[in-house]
Design a protein around this nucleic acid. Structure first.
Length: 935
RNA sequence: GGGCGAAUAGCUCAGUCGGUAGAGCGCUUCGUUUACACCGAAGAUGUCCCGGGUUCAAGUCCUGGUUCGCCCACCA
């Protein structure tokens, strides 16, 4: 359990604390050494997992926070998109857990029907096995073997990333309870008539011999030809020219269409044409789908092989000639000259024969928008086929409403309109797949007809197929149910499987137990967030919203976050074939999970692409290294008495107050940015606060106080500084932990803290009590004085006695006092010999002291010595004066413009006047200095 | 064809309510200060894609265009 390791770590911390002044000997944790992410990360994940901190328990006293992660395919291994998304999900989960929510992040995997089948087929083929010869059952066994062997390897990779998911609740989309849920989904929709058997032109993947849905088809631009063919009139009185990119479909033409408004064809509608290469006659019909401006204005109509033509065919009651088969070869209906030919060979032959007949008018080069199957890369063949469909319209309506009513929020917001646009134009969803691996369709048949992606008989229409009176099929989970439902033992289950997305559409509620009424479902549903890549907005997100509303009655999640696409550094998509992919596991090995996460989160803003280069991981690694080393510094400067509790307010110095103010701003910023999924801004807050404010400013300034002078006052100052350091670092670690979990836990354990693990420590909350404008003003004066002095030193190489005139800042009470008190600080920071804070400007008599203005009316006076290179200083003053003149000209221009003074807001005008006065004052002082130098 | 996004320093990107353009990396100069050279200090660097408009004032708002990218789509 956690407590053992914890006490060990605390012992280490105690040792650090007790053996003061010999820190190296005291640090036993990794902190004794240079930062090695691997050593830090390997020990923590196992401890977290064993201690059960990731396991969520429904708790009525807590608020629920739930994410169901997008289930990766069992074929997959972690890629940059996963790494990005899981970094976001885990950060949000850890953040909520620390804020006291009952946080559940539920992991799982997807059986990925077509993708898995493809990879198993390929694996078998490599062993010389044709999967078809194995038979269905054996093949499915092979798929399960694959899943046993490789299906969960991605979990280990997600663990390496540090994700705090509840591994006790892992789900797989073919778990028996999940299968039950999908059957229930099918049954309800089937009984309501939303799932129906339909004959339509579907996207046929010739390689997989299966239908695929519209959104699994991508359009590629390919160079091809546009063929212009002549179709003669049946009576020989003339001819019509049509154009096509797919000549082989000519054999299946049922008509030629022209626009009813097209005067060229108006007199000819109804005329019969002789379809070349066949013995058929087809009519010239009027349909406004033909666009007069394209080509000749006439278009061939092939209802069985083109979706438009199919719909046109239905309007005109045209026959559907299927001339291309499921295997991509020409059917008998294509005629004896063509039967058995591959579709692309048939294309050449049709062109050759048309040419021989003198019916080719011309052939043009043409860029064709070619539909290609995403999974196989094969050119999609639109094919008339009988399949199972879901009528989406009734389901879309409520899913549109909840988004319009802002019950679901999209981040970035632009995806709302993109979603709505698609939903309003939604089309029927083809859910049957002619594959073996997947969830079998829970339908049983009695008819003798083939049931798998049927190509219906020629010349019939879709509606006729189902209208034969008898019950042809029924929903049944088992053979027994089927026999009862159909009233005969002469029945068998549908051969097809369901589209994978039909299963994953149920993900949020099915993983929580639906259709059973479980405690998890009642407590964690609706979930809080769905975060995913934009490419599956329609494929998945939209469908979860529809099923959630339809089956559970409520939205599945409140927020949808669409993360950017990770590209390579040139902006190209990462792909295996291009070899430009970055492997996140490789990054984790070399830079650590924390650096990998942080670098991804740094770029996870509102943009649609991330150009990722390894340099980004390197930079994030530097940040972790900085955190590591600064923490080592703090640890070796703590004592056994350091509690990490802030000293009483009156003992807090200006820089303490300033640091606490900056910390508070960072706390506020991180919380706000995480709430709006602005991960990049959250990392920016942490980066700037820790590196610039904590390390570069505070730690440098506090160093003198850590070296006590041995007096009681000195001891108190030292102890106070130690406690402020410990307090701020401990708070900062909690603030950072959700983003970079490993390194923060390692360091936190070595610091004074309460609790067993930082995973369950309270998340910092902003407190406006830390705000104090005087602190900021005073601190700004100090840093500005330091900056000016350093600049002078760098450019002039002088290090003389300096006086600081603070008289002019009496309007900011704290500054006056503080400048005097912090004189030593400025000396130290600017590496001066001596600094004196004076009430009035030293006399310029004899030119001994020369002044230079800094901010807020405060002036620095340097003692002129031999070392001062007057020439260089004159150059420097002239340059600064030039800048001042520019600013004065700008302000005078604005204030001299009557309409600005008249129309701009009063505050704005006053602000400009104030600035002008300030610049003018500075100019006066600079000019004075110039005169002195000239002497 | 429709929709969306992007264009700001050499590179990658921020820039909220319109009010003096920022960060990181890189670059120049300096620095072995007992956490860190994976560091520190100082510094240089802009036609905010182009044109027009609104406004006292535009990187920001409106309008037209250019280039790049993404998504959707049935133009043969």
């Amino acid at each position: 359990m956690m407590s053992e390791e914890n006490s060990a770590a605390e012992n280490a911390a105690d040792k650090v604390n007790s053996e003061k002044h010999s820190p190296q000997a005291g640090i036993e944790s990794e902190l004794a050494k240079a930062y090695e992410p691997k050593a830090v990360e390997e020990k923590w994940y196992a401890r977290w997992k064993e201690s059960g901190v990731f396991q969520a328990v429904p708790d009525p006293n807590k608020k629920p926070y739930c994410i169901t992660i997008p289930p990766p395919n069992i074929t997959g291994s972690l890629h940059m998109g996963h790494a990005l998304n899981n970094s976001v999900l885990d950060t949000l989960t850890r953040w909520h857990r620390m804020r006291g929510f009952s946080a559940l992040c539920l992991p799982g995997t997807d059986h990925a029907s077509i993708a898995t089948q493809a990879v198993v087929v390929r694996t078998l083929a490599a062993e010389g096995i044709d999967y078809r010869t194995l038979g269905r059952e054996k093949f499915i066994e092979k798929c399960w073997e694959w899943r046993e062997q490789y299906g969960t390897r991605i979990y280990y990779q997600i663990e390496k990333l540090g994700c705090s998911y509840d591994w006790e609740r892992v789900r797989f989309t073919l778990d028996s309870s999940y299968v039950d849920a999908v059957e229930e989904e099918f049954r309800r929709w089937y009984e309501r008539g939303l799932v129906y058997r339909g004959v339509r032109v579907v996207n046929w993947d010739v390689k997989f011999q299966s239908a695929v849905s519209d959104i699994e088809v991508e359009t590629q631009e390919r160079q091809g030809k546009l063929y212009h063919f002549r179709y003669p009139f049946a009576d020989g009185s003339g001819q019509i020219t049509i154009a096509t990119t797919r000549p082989e479909t000519l054999l299946g033409d049922s008509a030629v269409a022209a626009n009813p408004e097209d005067p060229r064809y108006q007199p000819l509608f109804g005329t019969m044409l002789r379809l070349p290469l066949t013995d058929r006659e087809i009519p010239l019909i009027a349909d406004d789908y033909a666009k007069p401006e394209f080509g000749s204005g006439a278009v061939k109509v092939t209802p069985a092989h083109d979706l438009n033509d199919f719909e046109c065919g239905l309007r005109h009651n045209l026959p559907q000639h299927i001339v291309i088969g499921k295997d991509g070869r020409m059917t008998e209906l294509a005629g004896v000259n063509f039967v058995g030919l591959d579709r692309f060979e048939a294309r050449k032959k049709v062109v050759a024969e048309m040419d021989a007949l003198g019916l080719v008018e011309k052939i043009e080069d043409y860029t064709i928008q070619t539909p290609v199957s995403e999974r196989s890369g094969e050119v999609i063949e639109p094919l008339l086929s009988e399949q199972w469909f879901v009528d989406m319209k009734p389901l879309a309506k409520p899913a549109i409403d909840v988004v319009l009513e802002d019950k679901i929020h999209f981040f970035p917001a632009r995806y709302k309109d993109i979603y709505l646009h698609w939903m309003e134009n939604i089309r029927p969803w083809c859910i049957s797949r002619q594959l073996w691996w997947g969830q079998r369709i829970p339908i049983w048949w009695t008819s003798d007809e083939q049931k798998s992606g049927d190509q219906p008989a020629v010349g019939t229409k879709a509606e006729d197929q189902n209208q034969n009176g008898d019950l042809r099929h029924a929903f049944a989970r088992t053979r027994e149910e089927a026999i009862i439902a159909l009233g005969t033992e002469n029945c068998w289950q549908d051969e097809d499987v369901l589209d994978t997305w039909f299963s994953s559409a149920l993900w949020p509620h099915a993983t929580l137990g639906w259709p059973r009424d479980t405690e998890d479902l009642r407590y964690y549903y609706p979930t809080n967030l769905l975060s995913t890549a934009q490419e599956i907005l329609y494929l998945w997100v939209a469908r979860m919203i529809m099923t959630g509303l339809d089956f559970v009655g409520t939205i599945p999640f409140h927020d949808v976050y669409i993360h950017a696409t990770v590209l390579d550094e040139k902006g190209d998509r990462m792909s295996k074939s291009k070899g430009n992919g970055i492997d996140p596991i490789d990054l984790i090995e070399r830079y650590g999970a924390d650096a990998t996460r942080f670098s991804l989160l740094q770029q996870a803003g509102k943009n649609q692409d991330i150009k990722y280069s390894e340099q980004r991981t390197d930079i994030a690694g530097n940040f972790c290294n900085k955190l590591w080393n600064a923490s080592r510094f703090v640890l070796m400067n703590l004592d056994a008495t350091t509690t990490g509790k802030l000293p009483p307010g009156e003992r807090l110095t200006l820089i303490d107050r300033w640091l606490l103010l900056r910390l508070n701003r960072a706390i506020d910023g991180v919380n706000k940015n995480l709430a709006t999924y602005d991960m990049d801004d959250a990392t920016g807050e942490l980066y700037r606060f820790f590196w610039n404010d904590f390390c570069d400013q505070y730690v440098e300034m506090v160093k003198p106080r850590l070296r006590s002078d041995g007096t009681a006052k000195g001891e108190t100052e030292k102890a106070d500084a130690q406690n402020v350091l410990a307090f701020v670092l401990e708070t900062t670690l909690r603030l950072m932990h959700p983003l970079i979990p490993f390194i923060t836990e390692e360091i936190w354990q070595a610091l004074p803290h309460s609790g067993e693990t930082i995973c369950l420590a309270a998340y910092p909350v902003a407190d406006s009590a830390y705000e104090d404008p005087n602190v900021e003003t005073a601190f700004a004066l100090i840093t500005e004085a330091v900056r000016v002095l350093r600049n002078m030193r760098a450019e002039l190489g002088i290090l003389q006695s300096v006086k600081l005139n603070a008289a002019a800042v009496a309007s900011v009470p704290i500054s006056h006092v503080t400048l005097r008190e912090q004189g030593a600080l400025i000396v130290n920071m600017a590496r001066l010999e001596r600094l004196e804070v004076v009430e009035t400007a030293p006399s310029a008599e004899g030119g001994k002291w020369v002044g230079t203005p800094i901010a807020g009316g405060v002036e620095l006076f340097l003692e002129i010595g031999d070392a001062l290179d007057t020439g260089k200083e004159q150059e420097r003053v002239a340059k600064e004066l030039g800048e001042v003149e520019k600013q004065i000209a700008r302000a005078e221009g604005m204030l001299g413009n009557a309409s600005f003074v008249e129309r701009a807001s009063a505050e704005k005008v006053a602000e400009e006047r104030r600035r002008l006065a300030e610049w003018q004052d500075k100019r006066t002082k600079l000019e004075e200095r110039r005169r002195q130098l000239e002497k």
